[in-house]
Write a protein that binds this DNA or RNA. Structure first.
Length: 270
DNA sequence: CCCTGAACCTGACCGC
DNA sequence: TGCGGTCAGGTTCAGG
């Protein structure tokens, strides 16, 4: 489910409820996520949330004693609920706060993660080697062009690689390439500098627009307060196989790249 | 280092 | 209604 805009939407949604709030209780109904939830996470109890940050698709809940790292995987969502409200299937964790609110992690497929680190979270193994934030100045055409030289992978898989740039998942990779007029099949190493200029701009534009719209709700993404996102109304190619291209009218195609579906317009994208 | 494909897991949907 | 196959918004890891 969640790419960067959905995670950022979630971050913004939970922050007002938990910033400076003290964790009173941790309820772990299912510890088996991508990795087991560590017992040390209980050290979070009694701590105040000092900041609610995001790095790539990871949420960082910082306290004085350590930081919770939270990833939503493919099917995860976080909602703010009343602490005593009834949980449903796949509601694996509640982090309960002194204000009687809780953030509740639901993740049917359990590809998400919830970890605890007492060290600098940015130096954590999973975070350390991540590429730049797509909306930062560090993510620019010079950088991406240099990284791409000599690489034979498709441009689509290249921009989805979190070590190159974080946060660009399957939907927004497809959409950014469409807006850039670049074929998803082209080798990353053969894309010109000029086209990387465009691509970087389009990635930034698509992600920023999606954040403004509260993310994309395909089936079950919800914001922290339970509302869906609205960016799906602006999708040009994702999920539109056999539909007409909104720009040129030709038929949108679907192929598989790196075990993921890619949607594109063979006329607009070269 | 680079690339590819398996693995992790559940649920929805489709065709028979 | 049931059954099997396919697909799904992510990422790590093993092997070549």
């Amino acid at each position: 489910m969640p790419e960067l805009p959905e995670v950022e939407t979630t971050r913004k949604g939970i922050k007002p409820y938990i910033q400076d709030q003290r964790v009173t209780k941790l309820i772990i109904r299912q510890p088996k996520l991508r990795w087991p939830i560590p017992l040390s996470l209980h050290d979070m109890q009694g701590q105040k949330i000092r900041s609610v940050k995001r790095r790539g698709k990871y949420l960082l809940l910082e306290t004085d004693q350590g930081t919770a790292l939270l990833h939503l995987g493919m099917s995860g969502s976080l909602r703010v609920v009343d602490a005593d409200s009834a949980h449903e299937k796949h509601d694996h964790v509640d982090i309960v706060f002194a204000n009687n609110k809780a953030i509740r992690l639901r993740d049917p497929r359990r590809f998400g993660a919830l970890l605890w680190t007492v060290d600098d979270p940015l130096q954590h193994k999973l975070i350390r080697s991540l590429g730049p934030e797509p909306l930062s100045d560090a993510f620019n055409a010079d950088y991406l062009f240099k990284q791409s030289r000599g690489r034979t992978v498709s441009i689509k898989q290249f921009i989805m690689n979190g070590h190159m740039v974080v946060g660009v998942g399957n939907i927004y990779a497809c959409e950014s390439l469409f807006k850039s007029g670049i074929s998803p099949k082209r080798s990353a190493g053969k894309v010109s500098k000029k086209r990387y200029e465009t691509l970087v701009l389009m990635i930034k534009e698509v992600l920023a627009d999606a954040i403004e719209q509260g993310g994309t709700t395909l089936k079950d993404f919800v914001q922290a307060e339970g509302k869906p996102g609205y960016f799906q109304q602006q999708l040009n190619v994702y999920g539109r196989m056999d539909d007409d291209c909104l720009v040129c009218g030709s038929t949108i195609k679907k192929i598989t790249q790196g075990q993921r579906s890619t949607f594109y317009c063979g006329t607009c994208q070269r």
